[in-house]
Design a binder for these strands. Structure first.
Lengths: 191, 191
DNA sequence: GGGTTTATTGAGCGATCACTCAAGTATATA
DNA sequence: TATATACTTGAGTGATCGCTCAATAAACCC
């Protein structure tokens, strides 16, 4: 009996993710979302409930895609090469937004929206665990000094990656060169 | 003949800097500023002209204090030790906000306020130059391998610093440890 | 095709945004 | 003390914020 919705919810979340990623939480108004997703206010709230709820979905989608990408890459080219390739990937000049959406969200929302900031923080932690697994995997394959703490390496890698991705937003910084410098440090972890 | 203003403009800019730094541009409303600075709207606009204008002053104040701190420190303990000390300083748990105000501003405003974002970008560049001078100075004192490009070292250092400062906002990351790891890499630049 | 159910629509809600301005007040000079 | 001059005040501006809801349109089952 019921009429079925005419839009692809998953595709809308993807669009919303890109909008939020680029413009931030406060920088993206409901009007912006309605225009971009071609949704009237009523449909928007029927589909997602609130701006915050959609933002949470966008964050999850962002993190989930990131982990999937790293996992897939690791199966193809191995863990250490994956970590090095990721540095080049985030700096790819064809990408519209370079900075990490989780980091941007965490910074923007920490002082005014605890719930969403915590959500972003949790996903940052999940990414960190993903990096740690790659370092552990690299150690078991003899690519990284086994005496080093993989969790510590992961935190350092994530920190370097966030710095790189902020730097890459600027157009007066050679992000490629920076990515190469960071990748060179990964090679120095060899036993 | 004129009546003199009753407030200390410089102190107000400092207060505004801390508010903006912590809560961001969109996260700080005129009401917030009026409450914190104890200024009615009329006085506010007489003194600063607009929210954006005060934000610009706050950014300048932030960068100016940073450069002054580094310069003073370098005269006391030398350039390389200054760069290492700065890593510990930004992670000091007594500081209310860890992340770099220039980086936060740049990320938040790039997609919606070109003028202020460019201003923050220019100040980031000035900080980068300050770091490069310290590396050059360190090279001339034999503390850093003279074959390395000081500008490149500065970009890497600034990137690492930004990553560290974002990480330090999280309370599930041991920022002290991270700061030590980055400082250790500086020691490896020794000829 | 009739009846039911749900999606879609868009005008408009109260709240808040950055900001203005005319009236009132305090101070320095004369 | 009188006057000129600027600072201080806060009610109020139009615009935009996230969001609601009653009316309408469309798809399903029988």
């Amino acid at each position: 009996m019921p009429r079925r919705p005419s839009f692809d919810r998953d595709a809308l979340i993807e669009q919303a993710r890109d909008l939020f990623w680029h413009r931030g939480w406060a920088g993206t108004s409901l009007k912006d979302l309605e225009r971009e997703l071609k949704l009237k206010p009523g449909s928007f709230y029927a589909a997602f409930g609130s701006k915050d709820a959609l933002y949470a979905l966008a964050l999850e989608r962002y993190a989930q895609d990131g982990v999937a990408r790293l996992t897939g890459l690791a199966n193809e080219i191995g863990p250490l090469e994956t970590l090095k390739t990721q540095l080049q990937h985030v700096v790819d000049p064809t990408r519209e937004t370079k900075a990490c959406m989780l980091a941007k969200s965490y910074l923007e929302l920490k002082a005014q929206n605890d719930e969403l900031a915590d959500h972003a923080g949790g996903l940052l932690k999940a990414m960190e665990r993903c990096f740690a697994d790659l370092f552990r995997h690299a150690q078991s394959e003899g690519q990284v000094d086994p005496s080093l703490d993989p969790d510590r390496l992961a935190r350092r890698y994530q920190s370097d990656l966030m710095g790189l991705r902020v730097s890459a937003e600027r157009d007066d910084v050679d992000a490629m060169e920076l990515a190469r410098d960071i990748a060179d440090d990964l090679d120095r972890l060899h036993p």
